[in-house]
Computed example of a mutant assay.
Amino acid sequence: MKAKGLPRSVAELRARVGKVTMRGGDEVARARRMLDVYLETAATHGLAVEDVAREIKSGLPALRIGGAELTAQTDSAPVRLAACAPGCAFCCILAGDEGAVILEAEARRLHEALVPLAGAPDGRAWHSRACPALDPETRMCRAYDARPMICRTYVSPDAEACRQISEGTPAAGPGVLGAQRTYLTVQALGRAGLQGAVTVPTYALARIAAAAVEGRDLAAALREARHKPRTLEDERARLTGAATD
């Protein structure tokens, strides 16, 4: 049985996404086109709308589209000029207890990667606001292959600027690649297309990581880290002023 309010088909979901009104101008238009291609492909392959809705809820379309964007930006100037290096973890000193916005699939992968490390010293033994995924001695990420999109897209040409920001002092240079904004916008469009039928949550990176290394199960981690609905749009707006490209 379909969830109440769920589109009757992928074609109807495409139509809903096409009618979503959202701030962002050309960036939203571009993300909408890419999501439309994704949905068109899903329909061509005969995927049921229930399956597509589950994919959107988990964030898979956003991750795949954003991931393709990130690959295309590999040779961009911000990446070529990045000062990022192993053990330079100033960007892993997080603001508050949130850290960053991540999607359900990312939250699940991150939790799975860190659960085996439960009880071991974590990044907070190095710095009280460091990401729990860090090794406190090497300052290397212990969940590198499972790191969320924000960790993959944040770059800086100046490590000193990162240090200043970690201490609360504004500095020019660090920022996110466009792939991060694309991924968030695709997720926002998909969520709007499913409004009233499927809840599409986001989660706090730091809380997921902390729950995992403190030994709490996935259900508890997701419950503790779940954001209020407005958080996704707030993050999109914030990153508009933090772009490097």
Results as ranks from 00 to 15, higher is better:
54 R>C: 11
54 R>E: 14
54 R>P: 01
56 I>G: 06
57 K>G: 06
57 K>F: 05
57 K>A: 13
59 G>C: 09
61 P>M: 07
61 P>W: 03
61 P>D: 11
62 A>H: 02
64 R>L: 14
65 I>V: 08
66 G>I: 04
69 E>M: 12
70 L>C: 04
71 T>N: 13
71 T>M: 15
71 T>V: 14
71 T>E: 14
72 A>S: 13
72 A>N: 09
72 A>R: 14
72 A>G: 09
73 Q>T: 07
74 T>L: 12
75 D>F: 15
76 S>P: 01
76 S>L: 04
77 A>R: 10
77 A>T: 11
78 P>D: 06
78 P>S: 04
79 V>A: 05
80 R>F: 07
80 R>I: 08
80 R>N: 07
80 R>S: 15
82 A>N: 12
82 A>I: 03
82 A>G: 11
82 A>W: 02
84 C>T: 10
84 C>G: 14
85 A>P: 14
85 A>Y: 15
86 P>H: 11
86 P>Q: 15
87 G>H: 14
87 G>R: 14
88 C>D: 15
88 C>N: 15
89 A>N: 10
89 A>P: 05
89 A>H: 05
90 F>K: 10
91 C>A: 11
91 C>M: 11
91 C>V: 12
93 I>W: 03
93 I>S: 03
94 L>M: 11
94 L>C: 03
95 A>N: 10
96 G>F: 09
96 G>K: 07
97 D>E: 12
99 G>Q: 00
99 G>M: 00
100 A>F: 05
101 V>C: 11
101 V>Y: 04
103 L>A: 08
104 E>M: 07
105 A>Q: 05
105 A>H: 06
107 A>H: 00
107 A>M: 04
107 A>S: 08
107 A>L: 02
108 R>E: 09
108 R>I: 10
108 R>F: 03
109 R>G: 08
110 L>M: 07
112 E>W: 09
